[in-house]
Every structure is written in structure tokens, then in C-alpha cells.
Simulated assay, not measured.
Amino acid sequence: MIKVSVVMPTYNRADLVGRAVESVLNQTFHDFELIVVDDGSSDSTRDVLNKYNEDKRFRYIFQENQGQSVARNKAIELASGMYLAFLDSDNYWPLDRLEKSVPCIESLGMDYALVYGDGYSVDLDEKIIGSSDRKGHPDSCLYDLLLNNFVGMNAVLVRTEQVKALGAFDETMRSGEDYDLWLRVAIEHKFKFIPEKLCYYLVEGDRVSNNFEGVMANNERSIERVFQHMDSPINERKKRNIWSRFFNRKGRYFSQNRQKTSAMRCYLRALSYTPLSFNVWRSILALVK
């Protein structure tokens, strides 16, 4: 059985997908397959990818455009690896990414479903312009995860059986679908942090993840779904803190974009959950200055 199935959706990324593919095929860890699902590209993506067909670890699938959740789920359906790793076609991995991830998850018990690491942000010239530095989250991390998504999609290694048991990604979501899946996994399983930079994330204007309002709408759905789960361990006090943090963060986004009415509406919603929150009152004072 193959150890790792690498899942890569792509759409009109002919200029970048080759870099992503080669960062996988050149890994120092060799026991993997790479499944690329082309979500209906109309550029030369197919031509770029055809040159990798001779590599037995590489598999290319074309589908009509249905969104990245459907594309990822198609690859997961075909996956034969014990573990799943994800790489978007505009990002790329350091060459020891899998070598650092696989031994970690294999050292853990089955109560651990997922390991994750940090990453660098890069520009189009591959210059590092930022990084994530996650620390301090417990292995039983559902509450922390409900407060904020700290698990980067492209720095994850997760047990295939757990993902398939949960139905994989929600195909009705065009953004925020990774957070939704991590929450569902975290209800019953632990996560382990790897203190390493495991991905390079490209920062540019047309990324799906830049659709903040769509992401937040789907995040709200995902959080509510956890609260409705019969086995959710989240009590009422924690729920109020989670919603307050959520609407305060949403309000700050509107404030930064000079949408003061929408921002105030979010801040008041946050206060309805935690009337004495210093952070929310600070956001309101910053808005009315």
C-alpha cells in the first residue's frame, strides 16, 4: 500500500502548476502518488502536465469545471495511500516536506488523525514575504480551532480513512472547505503540530482564499454544524466566546475596507455574546474615532 496520496486540484494555472508538481515529484520521501485533478482549465494546463505522464507516481484527471472541493474529492476517491496531503497548484513544497510529516504521524496513536506545520508566504518571484508561526495549541484542539483556523491546508498530513469516513470536503463550499473538514475531524480526533515550515504559499490577488466574505459565510456554517453535533464537547460559555471572536474578526475586516455600517453591525453582534469583551470594545472605539 502506498504511504501518501498527494491531492492537487488545478484550474488555469499553466504558468505555475509545473513548479508545484516538480516540488512533489522531487521529494526526498519517495513512497507516494500524485493525483492532479484539472477542474476544466481552458489554458495550456493539460499541455504542461502531459510531460509528467511517464512518471508512474503521477496521475492526471480532467473534469468539467465544478469547483476545487469536487476536484479534491475526486482525487480522494481515487487515492490508495494511507495518508492524504494537499497541495494547491499555485503553491509548492520544500523537498523534505513529506520526510518530515510521515514519521511524525506514524509515531502517534490512532487517536491522532492529522499532523500540520507552518509555512512561508512568497511573492511571484519566490521571495519570502512572511511566515506563519503557530504555537501553543493543544493536541485536543477543537475549541482552539473553533476560535480560529490555524491549520494550513498545504501543510497537512491526515489519515485517509478518517477523511473518507467523514465524506471528505463539502462540495457546496467554494471557499473555507478545508476549515470545515478540519473541524469535523477534530470533534473526535487529536492533531499534532510539527514545528517546521512545510509549504510555500503564493500571495497574489486572484486566490480563492481572498474571498473573505464567502469564507466567513462558510465558516459560520461550519461552526454551527459543530455546535449541532451530538458529540460536540463545547459548552455554552465557550460557544459565546467563539461567536464573539468570529463576529469581531468579521467586523475588523469590514472596518479595514471602510464599510463602517457592516463593521458596527458585526461588533454589536459580538457584544451580544460577550458584553464585557475588551477586544470588541477596543474594535468599536477604533471604528468611531
Rank of each mutant, 00 (worst) to 15 (best):
D47Q: 04
D47W: 04
V48P: 00
L49P: 02
L49D: 01
L49W: 02
N50E: 09
Y52S: 00
N53V: 06
N53G: 06
K56M: 12
F58L: 01
F58I: 02
R59N: 12
Y60C: 08
Y60L: 15
Y60I: 01
Y60W: 09
Y60F: 13
F62T: 10
F62K: 12
F62L: 13
Q63I: 15
E64N: 14
E64V: 12
E64G: 10
N65K: 09
N65E: 02
Q66R: 15
Q68N: 15
Q68A: 15
S69V: 08
A71E: 11
R72K: 11
R72A: 05
R72P: 05
N73W: 11
K74I: 15
K74C: 13
K74L: 13
A75W: 07
E77A: 11
E77L: 13
L78S: 14
L78G: 10
A79L: 07
S80Q: 15
M82D: 13
M82W: 09
M82K: 15
M82F: 11
M82V: 09
Y83E: 13
Y83P: 08
L84M: 08
A85F: 06
A85W: 01
A85M: 04
F86R: 02
D88P: 05
D88T: 09
S89W: 00
S89N: 03
D90H: 10
D90L: 10
D90S: 02
D90K: 09
N91W: 02
Y92M: 10
W93H: 01
W93K: 00
P94D: 04
L95S: 14
L95G: 10
D96Y: 02
R97K: 10
R97H: 08
E99I: 00
E99V: 00
E99N: 01
P103H: 07
P103Y: 03
C104W: 07
C104V: 15
E106L: 02
E106K: 02
S107Q: 12
S107N: 13
L108D: 11
G109Y: 14
D111P: 04
Y112Q: 01
V115R: 01
G117D: 05
G117P: 07
D118K: 01
G119H: 08
Y120C: 04
D123I: 02
L124D: 14
L124F: 13
E126K: 15
K127S: 06
S131I: 06
S131Q: 07
S132L: 11
S132G: 14
R134E: 07
G136E: 07
H137W: 05
D139M: 07
S140I: 12
C141W: 04
L142T: 03
D144W: 00
L145Q: 08
L146W: 05
L146H: 10
N148I: 01
N149M: 03
N149R: 00
F150H: 01
F150K: 06
V151F: 02
V151G: 05
V151M: 13
V151Y: 03
G152C: 07
N154E: 10
V156R: 00
V156N: 07
V156W: 05
V156A: 10
T160A: 15
T160V: 12
V163M: 03
